[in-house]
């Protein structure tokens, strides 16, 4: 069965996403990284479904997809406003509140 290697791949992708999230300063890239992480989770569910021969994993994938769509739309709205107000997408520039 391929489910276990698929899970390993999912973990690797998740890790890559996490590294991207931490290493990129541009909010857009961070969002991309998050997409990768969500995808990794989706892959893990599919792998689980494959392991148990169930459709539940696939269904979960569908819901993750929905989330990703909804979330990206909100996120991009915020990104647009950010670029209007701050004139940058550098995540480290948004640190007016701290302490």
């Amino acid at each position: 069965m391929l489910s276990t290697p698929a899970l390993v791949l999912a973990m690797m992708l998740f890790g890559l996403g996490l590294i991207g999230l931490l290493s990129r300063r541009n909010v857009l890239y961070m969002l991309l990284s998050l997409e990768i992480m969500l995808n990794a989770a989706a892959l893990a569910f599919i792998a689980g479904g494959a392991r148990w021969g169930q459709v539940d994993g696939e269904i979960m994938f569908l819901f993750i997809l929905t989330l990703a769509a909804a979330e990206v739309s909100v996120a991009l709205g915020i990104v647009l406003q950010l670029s209007y107000r701050f004139r940058t997408l550098d995540a480290d520039a948004f640190c007016e509140m701290k302490g």
Binding site: A69, A70, E71, S73, V74, L76, G77, I78, L80, Q81
Partner: peptide, 9 residues
């Protein structure tokens, strides 16, 4: 998602 994108965007 829809409303948020609409209002924020």
């Amino acid at each position: 998602g829809l409303i948020g994108a609409y209002h924020l965007g």
